Deep mutational scan, measured.
Amino acid sequence: QNEKLANELKSLLDELNVNELATGSLNTYYKRTIKISGQKAMYALKSKDFKKMSEAKYQLQKIYNEIDEA
């Protein structure tokens, strides 16, 4: 289960640069939040902690959705 979550989180991290570029014309909230979420996700992957990875995955998905809707 950890392996599956780690792969999903890696996949979301692969999209980080594209989504970060998409924040160029948006409010600074999005820029700041996506950077923080990305850092948390990288830390969670290194720690291999299921709870941290779950939270990081949720945060990344949430900010990606917010950027898409903005």
Rank of each mutant, 00 (worst) to 15 (best):
Q1I: 13
Q1P: 11
Q1R: 12
Q1G: 07
Q1E: 13
Q1H: 09
N2R: 13
N2Y: 14
N2D: 07
N2I: 15
N2F: 15
N2V: 15
E3P: 03
K4H: 07
K4P: 03
K4M: 10
K4N: 08
K4T: 08
K4F: 07
K4I: 11
K4C: 08
L5R: 01
L5I: 07
L5M: 06
A6G: 03
A6D: 02
A6E: 10
A6Q: 10
A6T: 06
A6Y: 15
N7W: 11
N7R: 14
E8L: 05
E8C: 15
E8I: 05
E8A: 06
E8F: 05
L9I: 06
L9N: 00
L9T: 00
L9Y: 01
L9D: 00
L9Q: 00
L9H: 01
L9K: 00
L9G: 00
L9V: 02
K10S: 06
K10M: 08
K10W: 06
K10L: 09
S11C: 13
S11H: 10
S11N: 10
S11F: 08
S11D: 09
L12Q: 01
L12H: 00
L12F: 02
L12P: 00
L12S: 01
L13F: 03
L13W: 03
D14P: 00
D14I: 06
D14Y: 08
D14H: 07
D14W: 08
E15Y: 14
L16I: 06
L16A: 02
L16F: 11
L16D: 00
N17L: 14
N17Q: 13
N17K: 14
N17C: 15
N17W: 15
V18A: 12
V18G: 08
V18N: 11
N19E: 05
N19H: 15
N19M: 15
E20W: 15
E20Y: 14
E20K: 12
E20P: 06
E20T: 15
E20I: 15
L21C: 10
L21H: 07
L21M: 09
A22D: 04
A22T: 06
A22G: 05
A22Y: 08
A22C: 11
A22K: 15
A22S: 06
A22F: 08
T23D: 05
T23E: 04
T23R: 05
T23L: 09
T23F: 08
G24F: 08
G24K: 14
G24R: 15
G24T: 12
G24P: 04
G24W: 09
G24V: 14
S25I: 08
S25N: 12
S25T: 10
L26D: 03
L26A: 03
L26S: 03
L26Y: 04
N27C: 14
N27T: 11
N27A: 12
N27V: 05
T28P: 14
T28M: 13
T28K: 11
T28F: 13
T28N: 13
T28H: 12
T28E: 15
Y29K: 05
Y29W: 08
Y29G: 03
Y29R: 05
Y29E: 04
Y29H: 05
Y29I: 04
Y30A: 02
Y30C: 08
Y30H: 03
Y30M: 07
Y30G: 01
Y30W: 09
Y30K: 03
K31F: 07
K31V: 06
R32H: 11
R32N: 09
R32A: 06
R32P: 01
R32I: 14
R32L: 11
R32M: 12
T33Q: 15
T33F: 12
T33E: 11
T33W: 14
I34Y: 02
K35E: 08
K35L: 11
K35T: 07
I36P: 00
I36S: 07
I36G: 03
I36E: 08
I36K: 07
I36T: 06
I36R: 09
S37H: 11
S37Y: 15
S37A: 15
S37N: 09
S37G: 05
S37I: 15
S37M: 15
G38F: 14
G38A: 14
G38M: 15
G38Q: 11
G38H: 10
G38D: 01
G38R: 14
Q39D: 07
Q39A: 11
K40N: 10
K40Q: 09
K40F: 15
A41L: 02
A41M: 02
M42W: 12
M42S: 04
M42C: 08
M42A: 08
M42Y: 10
Y43K: 12
Y43N: 13
Y43R: 14
A44S: 03
A44W: 02
A44C: 02
A44N: 00
A44E: 02
A44H: 01
L45K: 01
L45F: 06
L45D: 01
L45M: 04
L45Q: 02
L45T: 00
K46R: 10
K46P: 01
K46F: 09
S47Q: 06
S47Y: 06
S47T: 13
S47G: 04
K48E: 04
K48H: 06
K48V: 02
K48Q: 09
D49K: 03
D49T: 02
F50P: 10
F50M: 08
F50H: 07
F50V: 07
F50C: 06
F50W: 08
F50A: 07
K51H: 09
K51D: 09
K51W: 10
K51G: 08
K51A: 11
K51C: 12
K51M: 10
K51Q: 12
K52S: 08
K52F: 05
K52W: 05
K52N: 05
K52D: 05
M53R: 01
M53I: 04
M53T: 00
M53V: 01
S54F: 10
S54T: 13
S54N: 09
S54H: 07
S54W: 11
S54E: 13
E55A: 09
E55M: 08
E55V: 09
E55I: 11
A56H: 01
A56L: 04
A56N: 00
A56R: 00
K57I: 15
K57Y: 14
Y58T: 09
Y58G: 06
Y58E: 13
Y58F: 11
Y58R: 11
Y58P: 00
Q59A: 11
Q59E: 12
Q59M: 14
L60K: 00
L60A: 01
L60G: 01
L60F: 02
Q61M: 11
Q61P: 01
K62T: 05
K62S: 05
K62Y: 04
K62C: 10
K62M: 07
K62D: 03
I63R: 01
I63W: 02
I63P: 00
I63H: 01
I63G: 01
I63Q: 00
I63C: 03
I63E: 00
I63V: 05
I63N: 01
Y64R: 08
Y64C: 05
Y64K: 11
Y64M: 12
Y64T: 04
Y64N: 03
Y64V: 06
N65C: 13
N65G: 07
E66C: 11
E66Q: 09
E66G: 03
E66D: 05
E66V: 04
E66A: 09
E66L: 11
I67T: 02
I67A: 02
I67F: 03
I67W: 03
I67K: 02
D68K: 15
D68W: 15
D68A: 15
D68L: 15
D68Y: 15
D68P: 03
E69D: 07
E69F: 11
E69T: 10
E69Q: 13
E69S: 10
E69W: 12
A70D: 04
A70R: 08
A70C: 10
A70Y: 08
